[in-house]
Design a binder for these strands. Structure first.
Ligand SMILES: [Mn+2]
Ligand SMILES: [Mn+2]
Ligand SMILES: [Mn+2]
Ligand SMILES: [Mn+2]
Lengths: 145, 145
DNA sequence: CACAATTTGTAGCCTGTGCTACAAGGAAAA
DNA sequence: TTTTCCTTGTAGCACAGGCTACAAATTGTG
């Protein structure tokens, strides 16, 4: 079939998105927690994501290996410059997705949930379209229509 | 932090979405391929997703175990009623996400790519908001594209 | 029919991300 | 200071979903 290469490319991109998803959520969380409390510990991420401390430790190890985080045994988790950059980009995109959902009339609770998954699959082009829509469409405080 | 329970719920939902993602994409693909060619073989899915036939076989086995597909050795893959239902829902949601991206000005190529990942994280409420937007303010002259 | 090509299955490897159980380090309380 | 409690680390398990290599079955061709 000729349409196969197209679907292959799409699914490959989705798989690639998923490989970045954990990194994006973790650097964003570390940044948030550091800002809120001064430092980020394993236990903070455990509570943030609702997974065991073992899972957090292993994921942090991977993100250290990949250059997004740095830490030492029994010490707080810190962002590298690379991690900070990714966190800033991710937060901006997350916020735009959230704002778009609100603009389309989604409730805050559901928008918060859905944006958490959608954000990782929004390309630069799509993000720009979202931003343009938010700019041009009248900022309705409560979308009943 | 007090906001932790909220973030926990969000990330738990995202993880749950991901656990359904493969099932949704596979039943949709099987349905498409059966419609297009009369039957769906392992090799068709291999070409569709761009993964090895081993990966396809193992995922098909899981989906048979979970009641979405049925097959026998060296025979075509078929949908169960449960699988058909999921395929129909998934396709409708996929199409709505795709149409929304187009309506916001995303190119067809990028919309096709992004929708492949976004679709799995769109809740019922958000889907309804997308549909309403497309009905009320989509300047598309329907028909093609 | 016999042989070749395609398809499917199986063995065995990897990584990522979940978990529990237990061990050890660090901080707080007694 | 000693003891307790919280935190972090480690061992070892599970499952999903990637892979290659090789084997077997099916299908197509001469
Ligand atoms: Mn996020
Ligand atoms: Mn997220
Ligand atoms: Mn998809
Ligand atoms: Mn996803």
């Amino acid at each position: 079939m000729k349409n196969s290469p197209k679907s292959v490319a799409r699914h490959q991109r989705t798989r690639k998105d998923h490989s970045m998803e954990t990194a994006e959520d973790y650097v964003e969380a570390v940044d948030d927690i550091v800002t809120a409390t001064g430092q980020c510990r394993v236990v903070d991420l455990t509570r943030h994501f609702g997974v065991s401390h073992v899972t957090v430790t292993r994921i942090v190890s991977r993100l250290v290996r990949e250059g997004f985080l740095q830490t030492e045994p029994y010490r707080p988790i810190e962002l590298t410059n690379k991690g900070r950059t990714l966190a800033a980009e991710s937060r901006k995109r997350h916020q735009t997705v959230y704002d778009l959902l609100l603009a389309l009339g989604v409730s805050e609770r559901i928008a918060g949930i859905d944006a958490e998954g959608i954000e990782h699959h929004v390309s630069q082009e799509t993000l720009r379209c979202f931003e343009r829509f938010l700019k041009t469409s009248a900022p309705r405080t409560d979308g009943s229509t």
